[in-house]
Amino acid sequence: MIRVLIADDEAMIRAGVRAIVQSDPGIEVVAEAADGREAVDLALSHRPDVALVDIRMPRMDGLAAAAEMRRLVPATAVVVLTTFGEDAYISRALGEGAAGFLLKAGDPRELITGVHAVAEGGAYLSPQVARRVIDRFGGGRPAREAAARTRVEQLTQREREVLALVGTGLSNADIADRLFLVEGTVKSYVSTILNRLGLRNRVQAAILAYEAGLASDG
């Protein structure tokens, strides 16, 4: 059972999100917060697998709350769920360690897919957001691409293979199946890659994979 925290200052939005995610029998909402500070406190007390966090909330905005959760409850995967898809918000969210970024205007099925993806150790972006991230970072300028290729050269061949599959959004289990490894070994590889390259999360790793030419838009 995937345990979820919902943080949004609008009660109707919280109710709608709860109804969507709990339509999946494998997901349970364990707590709801009306502001960012409360979200952090509830994450500490409930230790959910996934936190769905809005950006604009009182007391502490969702991006600051995401950063606090990643620092205090690193096992909780944070997904930003918002109306605002501006590049600045996307960049800050991913920089703060969010494992996903979803738009409220998206297909409700994306929400369930995203919760499962990040709970399994993957990353998930709304298709509209993914396209913008790829356009902004994946093509990159020549200097950015060259720098990315230089960074990944310090990885072993197997680590580059894992990074390439992280770049396609696969979970640890999917990567293990693809490379004929056990899931625990893949998790170890991913941790090593993040530490060696100075990356906060799988989304940043995926961006680097695109910039270095290891992953494609497929």
Rank of each mutant, 00 (worst) to 15 (best):
Y124Q: 05
P74S: 12
R92A: 10
V133Y: 04
L44Q: 15
S23P: 14
F137M: 00
L5H: 12
G213P: 09
E161V: 07
A164I: 06
S216V: 14
L102A: 08
S126Y: 04
D54A: 02
D24S: 06
D54Y: 00
F84Q: 01
P48F: 01
A173K: 07
A147P: 00
L103C: 11
A99Y: 14
R59Y: 14
R136P: 03
A11Q: 09
V53W: 14
R160I: 14
A11K: 15
A148Q: 05
T82N: 08
V162W: 01
A119K: 02
M12H: 15
L170R: 15
G114K: 12
L181C: 15
I90K: 04
L125E: 04
L181T: 07
S191Q: 14
A98F: 03
A206D: 10
D8Q: 06
E159T: 02
L208D: 07
R178Y: 10
I27P: 01
A209V: 09
V80Y: 03
V21Q: 06
I112V: 04
Q128T: 08
A130C: 08
R158M: 04
A34S: 15
A43L: 06
D217V: 14
A65K: 07
L155A: 07
A147W: 00
T83E: 04
F180L: 14
G218A: 00
I55S: 11
A143R: 01
G184Q: 02
D107H: 02
L163T: 10
E10M: 09
E211N: 00
K187V: 11
E96P: 05
V166K: 01
A65W: 14
E10P: 15
E68P: 11
P58L: 09
L42Q: 04
R178I: 00
L170T: 10
V29R: 01
E153D: 12
R70G: 13
D49Q: 08
R92C: 06
G36S: 04
R37L: 12
P48K: 15
F101R: 07
G213N: 10
I134Y: 00
D24E: 03
H46Q: 09
R144A: 12
L102D: 12
T168F: 15
V50T: 01
L5N: 10
A212C: 00
L52W: 04
V133N: 04
V53K: 10
Q128M: 13
E159I: 13
I55K: 12
V118F: 01
R151N: 02
V53I: 13
L199A: 13
E159D: 11
S126E: 03
I13E: 10
A77I: 05
L179F: 15
M12W: 10
L42A: 12
L179Q: 12
H46F: 06
D174W: 13
G139D: 05
V129K: 11
V21C: 11
E145T: 13
A65L: 02
G122M: 10
T82D: 06
Q22N: 06
T113P: 07
E183V: 06
I193L: 00
R200G: 05
R144E: 14
A215I: 01
V40F: 04
I20K: 05
A205C: 08
A173T: 07
I175L: 00
R14K: 13
A212P: 11
D177N: 15
A143Q: 03
R158P: 08
V118A: 02
D49V: 02
G121M: 10
A66H: 03
D177Y: 15
L42N: 03
M60G: 03
A98S: 08
G140Y: 02
A93V: 11
T113K: 14
R109K: 13
E211P: 11
A66P: 05
T168D: 08
